[in-house]
Design a protein around this nucleic acid. Structure first.
Length: 202
DNA sequence: CGCCAGATCCACT
DNA sequence: GTGGATCTGGCGG
């Protein structure tokens, strides 16, 4: 616990990184305050052949970061109002990323109150890729930021070792535009909500 | 509860 | 011009 996740951790396919990121900590510095939360839901987007992946139609201005070095943040804007946080995986020029879909609050939470006044501290207030970005003040300014460098104010640390039986899998959410088999691949990993209270006590 | 529409805008076609 | 790796509140059961 506490050691930063180094670049080598991310230099693998997103389908390997995504499940291992569960239980890790995401750390964010906002106004000199340090916020920590536990990653509890991820999705893998792997390669140009993955029809759900933004990179499937080639490199563009929007998805360019995914074609770069692993360990950097791919932050994109969607639905006219929401930011999403991914961490780039795999080799250079092989687009892959893990979408961070939900967190369990750990400490330093007050720094997030003003940004999520609507539901701060209520159950599930960090479950949702756009909600957690809002809470952690993550937006386009962080697109491309190196998450293996603490000076960016955003990185991952080793966290909890999860027992395999509390990790579940499903198809990815919100990718109705994709085609089979990508549409149904079980590339979403999450900690079952009924196991969350056990996790935080660890 | 579950279902659904509206919000809102940038990059891509 | 189109549509999204979403969230929210309103409405009906």
């Amino acid at each position: 616990m506490g050691d930063i996740l180094e670049r080598a951790f991310f230099e693998r396919p997103a389908t390997e990184v995504a499940p291992e990121l569960l239980g890790a900590l995401i750390v964010r510095e906002i106004d000199g305050q340090r916020v920590r939360a536990v990653v509890v839901e991820t999705e893998a987007y792997q390669g140009m052949e993955d029809k759900a992946c933004h990179a499937s139609r080639g490199k563009t201005k929007r998805n360019a970061v995914m074609f770069g070095e692993a360990g950097h943040a791919y932050v994109y804007f969607t639905y006219g109002m929401h930011w999403m946080l991914n961490v780039v995986c795999d080799d250079m020029d092989l687009p892959a990323a893990v979408l961070i879909r939900a967190l369990a609050p750990l400490d330093g939470l007050e720094a997030m109150r003003a940004r999520r006044e609507r539901d701060f501290g209520k159950p599930g207030w960090l479950n949702g890729p756009a909600k957690l970005c809002q809470a952690l003040e993550i937006d386009g300014a962080l697109n491309g930021a190196d998450m293996c460098d603490k000076s960016t104010g955003l990185w991952f640390e080793k966290g909890f070792d999860l027992k395999a039986d509390i990790v579940k899998q499903s198809a990815r959410i919100g990718i109705g535009y994709a085609t089979e088999p990508w549409l149904s691949l079980p590339w979403r990993w999450y900690v079952d909500s009924s196991s969350l209270s056990d996790l935080i006590k660890l």
